[in-house]
Amino acid sequence: MPRAGLSTAVVVAGAAEIADEVGLDRLTLAMVAKRFGVALPSLYKHVEGLDALLQKVSALAIAELAEELVAAAAGLAGADALRAMAAAQRAYAKRHPGRYPAAQRVPDPADPAHVAAGEKAVGVSFAVLRGYGFDGDDLIDATRAVRSAIHGFVTLEIAGGFGLPRDVDRSFERLVDMLHEGNRVAAQARRLRS
């Protein structure tokens, strides 16, 4: 019989908290069982194993991140929208250093909520970058470029990879400024070619 109050959602939330504390790569089912004071086999009533748990943590993280991106970019356009979206992604990653990497997993096609959360997160980027005039394949390319740049910066920052004597916040602002200018120029060049 499952422990009273323990559900899949509770197990996943607990695993996400542990991932934030110790790192996603160090998360184990034993840690989750210990957190809830249950024997390890009891977790199998709620998740099929570690990979299934990681996929569910990913779904949770993507859904959380998507909500924050939507809220940040709502009602904004151009550079303001890009800055807000980038800042929201960075803030989420800093608050949730363990679950943030889980948000980078490809959504499980067998989990409609996971797929919907992934589509919502990508949809925010699409909406922001359409504001520059991108569409079709150019929109996908721009989305991948912006996502890669912001993710790379944030991942290095979380890992302590910026040791030079320069304010990291200022460097992040410069990165977003460069992304804005690059998008503006690329969109303008695209319009001239058309």
Rank of each mutant, 00 (worst) to 15 (best):
R3S: 13
A4L: 11
G5Y: 09
L6Y: 06
S7Q: 07
S7K: 07
A9H: 05
A15Y: 12
A15V: 11
A15L: 07
A16S: 14
A19V: 12
D20K: 13
G23C: 10
T28V: 06
T28E: 05
A30Y: 02
A33E: 01
K34P: 00
R35I: 05
F36G: 07
P41R: 12
P41N: 06
Y44L: 08
H46V: 11
V47E: 02
E48Q: 09
A52Q: 05
V57L: 15
E64F: 01
L65C: 05
E67V: 05
E67K: 13
V70N: 05
A71K: 06
A72P: 08
A74Q: 03
G75E: 09
A77H: 05
G78C: 02
A84P: 05
A84S: 03
A84T: 05
M85I: 04
A86Q: 01
R90T: 04
A91K: 04
R95I: 06
Y100F: 15
Q104R: 15
V106H: 14
P107L: 11
P109W: 00
D111R: 04
V115L: 12
A116N: 03
A116I: 01
G118N: 11
V122R: 14
V122H: 10
V124M: 06
S125V: 09
A127Q: 02
V128L: 08
Y132C: 06
F134E: 00
D138L: 08
I140D: 13
A142F: 07
R144G: 13
A145S: 02
A145H: 05
V146D: 04
V146N: 03
I150S: 04
T155H: 14
G160C: 14
G160Y: 07
G160N: 14
L164D: 13
D167P: 00
V168R: 15
E173A: 15
L175C: 02
V176M: 04
L179G: 07
G182M: 01
G182S: 11
V185M: 00
A186E: 03
A189S: 11
R190A: 14
L192P: 07
S194V: 14
